[in-house]
Design a binder for these strands. Structure first.
Lengths: 325, 325
DNA sequence: GTCCTTTACGACGTTCGTAATGATG
DNA sequence: CATCATTACGAACGTCGTAAAGGAC
């Protein structure tokens, strides 16, 4: 058994059981991959893939178990390599981040700006997606860290640290009837068409739930993936917008009136996460600290070594978090 | 980075930072180990060992972290190999068990007898020790499974399954004044010299605690590591014996009178454990089932895949256990 | 015929053990 | 001078890529 063989196995699986696709991804010849797979199968005495004639179709049950172990082996070796790189040159490297539009557009710019000043040689990669896509990218190892909201239970092999909490705000154009109202209620809101996020985006569909709990049915005129789109349609008079508090920019959105909706909808938690057992490079720790300054460095490092999420939850239990409202 | 290099690194550390000792253990030449260590250090750009002149003295901090990762890599590859062996020939292999004297002498004989009948080609290795030594052997990977009592919290990277509970029994020679007593009390016991286990052997020193809770002070005449020694001194009239219920053999101990002491001392739990993430061969599962027939096979396999002990505890919460009394 | 995997073959690189050297107490 | 780690060297082994062949659709 060799590390290269395990790497090939994982690449084949991640290429949809295709040897040629894996070879291309690995920048090696295709016969080389084919041969090493055979050598591995011979050594283990196991058929790792179900063969349909000559073509590989899927993993066998035994292959699945070997694959999972192989993935863990490669994660460990990657961590060792990351430690090596960090020791050689802590200023250089790359950091891939999966996150939502809201974070990427409204929260991260200032964090990234100061991060770039501190680490000009680190290449940053922002990957945007839905909560589900972010969870998938993180667990699949396509990104180093993820910043998202809700869906904490969908990430069993990850460590999630609390960043901040936030409420929704309601936005209307200045000429809208609601613009002069003093207190906002769900009943009042339910009489207007609403423009808000696609429901699965921030985990549980808490907005419809909040109305339902009050015995009301909201009139959802339009749902969109991001606050910029929502604001555009609010400006067009299509309806009343409901967006995350972070998405309100005092200058850019001076033409809109916004209301705190903390008393109407449940609070949300934004977290930053990484795969359990991964090694966080120094600049990754600094990035997380820039994003969540209330986290102390040794707390983050404790979380890095934690073996499960519940230990991390107790570590941060009761600690106050920033709140956007 | 190669698997062999990681294997060499781990062997060097486990040989007390000695290259020549590691080479001998690995059955390879000593220059080969030295060279591969150097290659690994060069590739990582890290000094893994503190050098005193030319001799290695201990791991550097970075070396310690690499070593821990390397250990995990090797554990995974060992698990893959174990899967391979199980698929090739599930009847053949070896099973190393760390356990206490009480289990080895009184509980395991019947379990092992039927195991040998079912798996005559599997080599069994029984390692005896104190709770602490058993925990150490299990975490260090010197044994495949451990069977012990108490000290559950000292095994953070292991999965422990409940086997059975047990109470102590009090033993006296037939001519002893207590032999004709009807009901046993702590007060009565405290008036006689006692012969019992060394206290740290079964975790918390529950025997002195039980007396202390009743405001009594026991007269401990002698403590020993195992029930056979205790029984010997009880027969000599040295005092009243207090041993685990399993240690009473109706035939062998027909010359002694024994009393149930369930109402006097707390109940103990005997568990069987393995390192988290290890692969249990089919015969290992069967051994565990022979030891704890109340465990269902799919429960054991669920526990095998569990990522932490608490998940296992909830899996077995409320399930009835056999009790020796 | 096209796509994908496997086999054949020759060149290259790597690793091993033996032997010798260096350093340390 | 005994012990331990490192360096030197030649033989053996393994792996790679190119080229060709074998099946399946």
């Amino acid at each position: 058994m060799k590390l290269a063989q395990l790497r090939y196995l994982v690449a084949i699986v991640e290429s949809g059981s295709s040897i040629s696709a894996a070879a291309e991804k690995l920048h090696v010849s295709q016969p080389g991959v084919s041969r090493q797979l055979k050598v591995l199968e011979d050594e283990l005495g196991l058929e790792l893939f179900v063969r349909d004639g000559r073509a590989l179709t899927r993993l066998t049950p035994a292959g699945q178990r070997v694959f999972e172990r192989a993935q863990r082996v490669l994660r460990e070796t990657q961590a060792i390599r990351a430690m090596s790189l960090d020791a050689r040159d802590p200023e250089r490297g790359s950091l891939s981040i999966a996150t939502t539009h809201t974070q990427a557009r409204y929260v991260l710019p200032s964090v990234i700006e100061s991060f770039r000043k501190r680490y000009p040689k680190v290449k940053l990669h922002l990957q945007q997606g839905t909560s589900e896509q972010i969870a998938e990218m993180l667990t699949a190892g396509q990104v180093d860290i993820a910043i998202s909201t809700g869906a904490r239970e969908r990430l069993p092999h990850c460590i999630l640290l609390p960043c901040y909490e936030w409420h929704r705000r309601v936005i209307v154009p200045k000429q809208h009837p609601l613009a002069r109202s003093k207190t906002l209620t769900l009943a009042k809101l339910s009489t207007y068409p609403l423009v808000t996020y696609v429901f699965n985006m921030t985990g549980p569909a808490s907005l419809p739930d909040a109305f339902a709990a009050a015995g009301l049915e909201p009139d959802i005129a339009l749902t969109a993936r991001d606050a910029d789109v929502i604001k555009t349609y609010v400006r067009l008079g299509l309806g009343v917008g409901v967006v995350a508090a972070m998405a309100i920019d005092p200058r850019e959105d001076a033409d809109l009136v916004s209301f705190d909706a903390a008393h109407l909808f449940p609070r949300h938690l934004t977290w930053v996460g990484f795969r359990r057992g991964s090694f966080l490079r120094r600049y990754s720790l600094d990035f997380i600290q820039g994003l969540a300054p209330h986290l102390e460095r040794n707390q983050i490092q404790k979380a890095e070594r934690a073996t499960d999420q519940s230990a991390v939850d107790t570590l941060f239990a009761g600690a106050p978090l920033p709140i956007y409202a």
